[in-house]
Structures are given as structure tokens and as C-alpha cells.
Amino acid sequence: MPLQKIIRNFRHILNKRSYSQYAKSFIRPIIKESDIQNITESKKINVLKNLNVKPPQNWESSSILNEVVLLKFTNYIMRDGKREIALTQLKKALEIIKKIQVEQYNKTTDEEERKQIILDPIRIVKQAVANCQPLLKLCPIRRGGSVYQVPVPISDTESVFRAMKWIVESSKEKEGPTPFALKLAHELLDASKNKGRVIKKKIELHRICEANRAYAHFRWG
């Protein structure tokens, strides 16, 4: 092996910073008020009592406006590091979702129909992301001079990434002069009901994976 290749293989070790402001024994803080209450009641508190705790990050707070899923979602909407614009777009989409759902709620008179409507917009976002998560992905692997699309199982974090990316992409694709926030809102609403183009995309990927099932053993070759 040439020296250059060796260095390339170990680059992630060489370039990694091995120091930190805090020692490894420090744990991350617990931020949500409900989590703190749960932990103080349980036995875990005896372990945590004697550990050192880091201060919270800049983006972490116990505020009601702070939601982890939304913070993650803005990263995929964002362009050129303009986080504020991305956040306002997402908030507009949430508002549109709530307008549609609340209007439907107030206009229906039947009690049982009313109870089935989901009014919380953040719940709808979570439902939509969960419905769009794929189970497999296609990996190009070279065997015997030709490249095969091999189905490979996907980790939880990556499938969430795929789902969010697809939702954002498909709301950018739509035709017409309608604003991005409106498209995003309708895409999220559709996905939460297991409809729409993102769900179609997921089903098609699963179908190709099923067709390429014969290549699955190339993963270990």
C-alpha cells in the first residue's frame, strides 16, 4: 500500500481533535421540565447526583417555542446558512396547517368526527415524518465489472433524514407560483394521512428493493 493511501485511511483519526473543554466524564444536561420531574422521581437520580454536568448548548432551552424536530427540519429547508428565513417559512407552514384543521373542527357539528381531527401542528409534522421513513436504501456496489443496486437496511437516524429531505424536495418541485410555505403545509398534511407524492416515492423505492432482492448477498462479498 502506498503511503498516501495509508494516510487517507487514517485521516479521520489524524485530523480529529482529541481535546475538549470538558472531560469525557461530563454528561449533557437534561432540559425539558417534564424529563427532570420524571428523573427525580425514579432511581436514576442516585447515579446522576454525583456526575458533572455540561452547560446547555445555545439552541437548547426549556421554552415552549423550542421543539427538537422543528430545529432539525429547518436545517433541511435552510440555504446559505439563512436560518431565520427557513424558520419563518416553517412557522408559516405550521400556521396554515392549524388554520385548515381548526376551521374543519369548528365547522363540524358531529362530536365523534370532531375527536378524530388532529389539531396540534407539531404532532402532524411528526406523523408525516414517521410515515415517510423508508426501511431500505439502494447502494451501488461493483462486482465483476458491473455495478449493482443493492438493497441495504437503513439506520433510524438516516431514515428520518431521508423522510425530511424528501418532504422538502417535493414541496420545492411543485409547479405554479404558490409560496413554499403553502406547498410544504399541504405536503405535510398529505403525508400524515399516508397520501401524496412523498409516500409514492417511498413505495417506489421499496418496490425496486424488492426487485433487486437477488443482489442482496453482494453486501458481504
Binding site: L119, K126, A130, T157
Partner: peptide, 22 residues
């Protein structure tokens, strides 16, 4: 205590595990 992207996964699972009540 999860890291960021794992935290998101866990948050979604936790919320959807419970049935929705208005």
C-alpha cells in the same frame, strides 16, 4: 441521554407511541 439526530428519532417515536388526545 441522546445526541442530536438520535434525539429527534426518539422524540418522534415517543410522541407517536401514545394515542392522540385533543
Amino acid at each position: 441521554l441522546p445526541w442530536r439526530s438520535a434525539e429527534v428519532c426518539e422524540n418522534i417515536k415517543e410522541e407517536l407511541g401514545k394515542p392522540y388526545t385533543q
